[in-house]
Every structure is written in structure tokens, then in C-alpha cells.
Design a protein around this nucleic acid. Structure first.
Lengths: 342, 342
DNA sequence: TGTTAGCACTCCTTACCCTTGAGTGCTAAT
DNA sequence: ATTAGCACTCAAGGGTAAGGAGTGCTAACA
């Protein structure tokens, strides 16, 4: 257990390092307001804190920088109790500007979030666990091609073009769509394939000539190729941080950011609420010297989305956590208003 | 007019510099195959070429690097005659893997193109000049909200959610959509607004109660917010080039790449075929020390798209032009096959 | 007249040394 | 328990010297 004084010194060092990115020396601390100790005393305390694993040195005679354990302690015990979900007006304002699409809200949130922090914002669109099919539409484009359109009860639209076998009758196609609409409306998106197999295929067999081949074409419509949508804001913002003086680091970082599904895996979490992952705590090697803070938001009660900020381990934890808290609830509210009568 | 020997030397210097990114000295050239001149002679020629504006020095006693005028000459007179649109098999293979969406073809092309060159690929989706409206659909989600869906004759789908005024009758809404479909099917997307104003509004006035307010809501559906779709592949690839040793350059480059509409403006051109823009020739300041090579491709004869590669002025012009030629025709063919019966 | 060898000169790059300053750890005094 | 003092360490920056790549010019040569 740390003494009150060690705690204070640890806090000062981390705050200072977060601000300046330079190792913090004993003299700087001794001059701080609220500190009436000499540099020598501070040095002793710092030496103890290093032995306990909360601080590190970059070389023998350098000042101290926080270790990951230090950051962890800082997040869990020093700032956590002081954070309150502040309802910043700007955010409320931005989030409720009368958008009509989830996409817009989420994209805007990512941009604003990144701008406010200079870190990279990553937002996962609402998951589709609980969305249900509202309607299937089929728009013929020509004799041999058509677009199929799926609409969910949340207003999300998926579409896909496909070819129609040469000898297939238009009337059969129509029958298929009718059957599908009749049977599939209200079915959760994730169960579509299953319900089709169990309940719809035998019906189609009865009414539709040559249905097997037709189904091969239609089934493409139901294959989800993109499980979650990923929105990223301010990739280049993060590169302003002094941590990126090294060009190789920039490149490896950007390579990761090009793979959306990798990003999704990175951010995804089962936990509710705020989740802080510091350095090595991250699952993916490539960002083991970054910190990632995520929060969840909700649409319509059941659908969950994730909103996160990726920055250097030397991150403004307090600010980011406060912001994420605010965004999480504002987004939930904005999306609730959008769907309140659906 | 350059002598044959000057031409040869200019070509060697540019080829060498493209390859190594280092200034080229007279000795290196004198040792090349096909050169039986001493370094001193080469030096005289180089001096002349510099005076003519085709070469530059980085400092008084350095080797030569090509000037932009040099690159321009190289592109126009040295390599241009030797380029033939090679039908590389890999490209054909990649481009015709049985995609069903334009999006997929274009996105894939951007990725492959960047991978083959280590430059950044930028592709503008087919322009909508000539696409026509196929159908408008309205899917009600609840009493007070609905999704409207526009399908074009090329299978492109646009959609938008909107709220329904509380006191509006469902039957009125249906009437509106019927009128719209009846009158707008086959109308070019770009003329939609106009045709609505001229031909549709007075019809609606007759049949639909309180149509003015309804129209306010519906009109949102017809506003194009994204004129062209932009696909980018391999942003980070380009950063591997030695030109990016300077971190500031990286940052300014990435900032540009975040603004899709800026990119679109950058790449857009009215010219058909291959178009090479070297350094200062580019419209936008931010990339005045890059080169941009673009080619056009076609969908369905009339729609035009642009496909481009952005790299350092020290670009592998020959390779890129050959590749773009090949991709341009392969994409045109792949997209033609997709739509041949529409 | 075109080509070439030779040489002095320029400038970049790298290595090395030296100095400076920030910071530590330890000891002894308070 | 705290602090002043001091020796020590290391990074960063400036200055200089050596090495090397390359040029331009001159004079000789074919």
C-alpha cells in the first residue's frame, strides 16, 4: 500500500509526463504547489516507487517516467474516484443536430472525439444481435439481373446485386420473394440462415420450379460479409504525438489501421462501461505500446456498440474517460431519440 | 532538341534515380552497359543537360537528379513510345473473380494496384452522369418513420431514413410514392430535382393532402450528399518511400488523404486515357512534390470512372503507366461483363 | 573538334571529442 | 525524518577533422 505522500508524488509525475512527454526529475516536483519537501526527499520517495514497480528510468541518471503498472495504479486508484460523467454542452449539441442516420451520428462522434483529444477515435457501429428483418425487396434491373434489398427494423439497409439464371421465370422469382417476406419478417438477422433452412426451403420447394438453383443465387443475399461497421476518426491526429518521431512506428501503426476487421477485434469487448487497456494489456501485439480506452453505448436498449480512443500509453486518461462517459450517454440518447417510435 | 547521346544519358540518370533515390554521378553512368564514354565526357553532357533545365544538383558538387522538366521529357519522349498495354494475366484473374458489386471490383483494384507498386491507389467510382432511376421504394418502420430507397438502373442503391409528420396519413404517403415512381422511373439521377419541380409537384398537390410539408421530408431523399465515391488503397505503402524520411511530410500527406472530397477533386480530370501530372503540374498545393498518374475506365459505355496512382515525383512511370493501362481495360471489361444484360 | 586524364576544389557525411546541464545516489549533518 | 552537499552518470549539442563522392576546368591527345 502506498503512503499518501507516495501517491501524491506518483500522481504529479504521471500528470507531468502526460503533459510533457519528458522524464520528470526531483527538482521539478519539489517546486510544485502543495509540495514542501526538498528534492532530496523526493528522490528517496521516487527510488522507493521505482522499486515497487510504479516508475522507470530511461537511463541511470534520468528522471522518472511511469511504468505500465504506474499507469494502471493511476487509472484505478488515483483518478477513478474523481471522475464524474460531465454533461458537456458541446457534445450534446453536436450529437443532436437532427441526424437521420445512425451512420451520421457515429461518424460525427468519431470526428469530434478525435478532434477533442488528438488521439484516434474508433467506433464500432451498433451490433446486429437484436435487429430484425423488416422487409425484403427485389428490384429487377433487366431480364437477367436484379438487386435485392434487406431492410431491418432499425432502418439499416443491406443490398446486393445478383444474376438471374436465364431460364428462370419472373413469376417464380416473385413467389420466392413473397414467401421470404411472409416468413422472414420479424426474424432476427442473425437467425435468417437458420430459419430459411428450417422453415422456408420446403415451402419454396412446393411452389417454385427449379428452386434449388434459384436458392444458390438468393443465398448470397443473406451472407453477412461485414459483421460490424468500423468508423475511424483522426488517424493522422495521433501521429502528432512525440511518440511517433520514429518513422517505422508510424508505418506499423498505419498498417494496422488499414485492416478494419483487425481494428474491430482490437476494440471489441464484452465488458459494459469504461474499459482501459494499457500497453501490454492489449490483445494485439502491434499496439502493445499504446493505450486503448473503450466505452459502450446502446441503441434501442439491446443493441450494443463500442466507442474507443487509441493513444500513447502516456494518455490523458482522466480527460479521455470523462469524454467517453459523456459521449457514450449522449450517443445512447441521440440514438434513442431517433428510434423512439420504431 | 536533344542529341541521341543526351537522350541516353538523361534516360540513364532518371532510371537510376527512380531506382535508388540518390543523386547520380558521372562515374556511375560511364560504367553502364552501352556507354563507352569516360566520366569526363559524361560530365560535359550533364552540364549541358542541366543548362537546358532537365537536370538539377542538390549542391555544388553533388551528382544530378532529374528536374520536373526532365521527368516530363522522360514521360513524353523517352518511355511513351515503348509502352504497350500488356494484358497481364494476374490482373485479369483478380478482376474477374466473380464479383457482384461494382464496389468490390473497384476496392479490390485499389488494393492490388497499391500492392503492385507501393504507391497509393486512388479510384473514383463510376460517375452518375448517365445512371437513371429504376425504382423508389418506401419501407415504413413505424408510424412515424420510414426508410426510402432509390435504386438506379446500374444496381446502385441509395437509402435514407426519415421521420413522418405525426398527422400524415399512410395512404397519402403511398400515393406520393406511387406518383414518384410513375413519373421518375427512367429519369437520370442528376435531373431528379428538376423533374420533380417541373412535373411532379403539381400532381402531388392535386392528390395529396398537405403535400407541401410532406415534400420537405421527402426532398431529403433526393439530395445527393456524395457526388463520387472514393476508394483508396495503400495509404501507408507510400510512406515506405525514402521521400518520407521527414515526419512533417508524412503528416501533411495523411491530412490530405483524410479528406475524401479533396482527393476526388485532385484526381478528377476531363481527359480520357492516361494523364500524367508531375509535381507542380498538380492543381493542389499539398501534393506539388508528388506525381499523379490517372487513367479512365468505363462502365456500360457512358459512365466514366478514374483510377490513379499517387507517388513521389521519382515514380516508376513506365511501370505505373503500363499497369494503369492494363487495369483500366480490365476494369472496363469486368464491369461490362457484370452489366452486359442490364 | 570531340574525347579524355588529371587535379584542385566543394560539400556532405560520419566520427569523435568536448562541454554543458539535468538528474541521480549516497553520505553526513540537522 | 529531512535536507544540503557532492561526486558521478548520461544525453544532447557544438565544433572539428577525416573521408569520400562528385564536379569543373585545363591541357593533352586522336
Amino acid at each position: 500500500m502506498l503512503t499518501k505522500r507516495q501517491l501524491l508524488i506518483l500522481k504529479i509525475i504521471i500528470d507531468e509526463f502526460i503533459d510533457s512527454a519528458h522524464p520528470v526529475g526531483s527538482r521539478v516536483i519539489s517546486k510544485k504547489d502543495g509540495i514542501s519537501l526538498s528534492a532530496a526527499t523526493i528522490r528517496n520517495e521516487m527510488s522507493d516507487l521505482e522499486e515497487l514497480g510504479y516508475l522507470e528510468k530511461t537511463h541511470t541518471s534520468s528522471g522518472r517516467i511511469p511504468s505500465e503498472k504506474g499507469y494502471r495504479y493511476y487509472v484505478d486508484h488515483i483518478i477513478a474516484p474523481t471522475i464524474k460523467s460531465s454533461n458537456i454542452n458541446i457534445i450534446k449539441h453536436v450529437m443532436q443536430e437532427g441526424y437521420f442516420e445512425v451512420e451520421q451520428v457515429v461518424q460525427k462522434a468519431a470526428e469530434v472525439l478525435s478532434e477533442l483529444t488528438n488521439y484516434t477515435a474508433i467506433i464500432l457501429g451498433p451490433e446486429i444481435y437484436d435487429t430484425k428483418l423488416k422487409q425484403i425487396q427485389l428490384v429487377p434491373l433487366s431480364d437477367h439481373s436484379a438487386v435485392s434489398i434487406l431492410v431491418t427494423d432499425t432502418g439499416h439497409v443491406e443490398h446486393r446485386s445478383f444474376s438471374i439464371p436465364f431460364d428462370m421465370k419472373a413469376s417464380d422469382l416473385e413467389k420466392m420473394v413473397n414467401i421470404l417476406n411472409d416468413r422472414l419478417a420479424g426474424v432476427p438477422i442473425l437467425s435468417l440462415q437458420e430459419v430459411i433452412q428450417d422453415e422456408v426451403l420446403h415451402l419454396m420447394k412446393r411452389y417454385v420450379t427449379d428452386f434449388e438453383r434459384a436458392y444458390v443465387y438468393l443465398s448470397k443475399v443473406f451472407s453477412q460479409d461485414q459483421p460490424v461497421k468500423v468508423y475511424v476518426g483522426g488517424k493522422s491526429n495521433l501521429l502528432l504525438q512525440p511518440e511517433f518521431r520514429d518513422v517505422n512506428k508510424i508505418h506499423s501503426f498505419l498498417s494496422i489501421m488499414e485492416d478494419e476487421q483487425e481494428i474491430a477485434r482490437l476494440v471489441q469487448t464484452s465488458k459494459e462501461g469504461i474499459h482501459v487497456r494499457i500497453g501490454q494489456e492489449n490483445d494485439i501485439d502491434a499496439i502493445k505500446d499504446f493505450s486503448l480506452i473503450t466505452a459502450t453505448y446502446h441503441v434501442h436498449g439491446d443493441q450494443k456498440g463500442t466507442i474507443g480512443l487509441l493513444g500513447p500509453t502516456r494518455m490523458e486518461y482522466r480527460k479521455v474517460i470523462t469524454l467517453l462517459n459523456a459521449f457514450s450517454s449522449e450517443m445512447t440518447e441521440a440514438l434513442y431519440l431517433m428510434y423512439k417510435d420504431k
